[in-house]
Design a binder for these strands. Structure first.
Lengths: 134, 134
DNA sequence: AATTAAGTTTACGTTAACGTAAAGGTGATG
DNA sequence: CATCACCTTTACGTTAACGTAAACTTAATT
């Protein structure tokens, strides 16, 4: 029985998959946002699917305008030590705050969408009024 | 009958209301994101409620990680000339794209929330298992 | 009349998040 | 064995989005 040997990714594979540069990936490692695993200290980085997932989540955070520091804090929530009750509690608490934030964001987005749809409606009517004018 | 004379805001009023600096507001004007109205070219800026709304929308865009340039482009959609059919069409088209983007964001946020709730559940169980351990 | 509060412009400083270039190591391939 | 292709580190450059400071004006108070 070999020790769980799932697929490993190279840095350029991930870069290509997510449409980012290898520099970006190295930078994320530099600031502690993600990890890499290397055989011999000196040579090529390799990434597990867990690393890949973390990167994916990080990029999601970016798309929503979070700073790398904020993202790191959020991702580190998933890596809490399950034997430490106090840590667990703090994690849950912080997580709840984030969830509330997400709810707020969803609400705001839906409002925005609604407003845009109303404008769309107005513009469509304006267009109709000018029908045939070329 | 006086010409529509609704409330005017000063720069520090708006800054305070939205929790930003006056510098930020001037900067937004500098890059054409918002406008101000002044009596005599030289003296204090004053803002209509329309200006205020535009600023509010801009800040909303910021919270979602859009750049000021992107925000400007989006806000300018609202200021289209209604007599220009082609412009109207382009505006509607671009607006539709933004609406689709918003839908995508909402979807992603809901996924994220779901995942976080699942983690929360797991952590709660871990906590329960350790019940009484202090 | 002098101080205070709020505004102005100009201009240089700062930070996050990378881009980019230089100089070099490895392993596969024609 | 030379040339890719891909990786590495180090380090300086760049841009957006303001912060901050200086020097000044104007209106209202003391």
């Amino acid at each position: 029985m070999t020790t769980k040997e799932s697929k490993l990714y190279s840095i350029s594979e991930l870069a290509h998959e997510f449409g980012i540069s290898t520099r970006t990936i190295r930078y994320y490692e530099e600031v502690g946002l993600i990890n890499s695993h290397r055989e011999k200290e000196t040579l090529p980085r390799t990434y597990t699917s867990r690393d890949r997932t973390r990167l994916k989540l990080a990029l999601r955070g970016k798309r929503f305008g979070f700073s790398l520091a904020e993202i790191k804090e959020m991702l580190d929530l998933y890596d809490v030590d399950p034997t430490e009750k106090e840590q667990l509690r703090r994690t849950i608490e912080l997580g709840d705050k984030r969830i509330a934030e997400i709810d707020e964001m969803i609400k705001e987005l839906e409002e925005t969408k609604q407003e845009m749809l109303e404008f769309r409606q107005k513009f469509m009517e304006m267009l109709k009024e000018k029908e045939g004018t070329s």
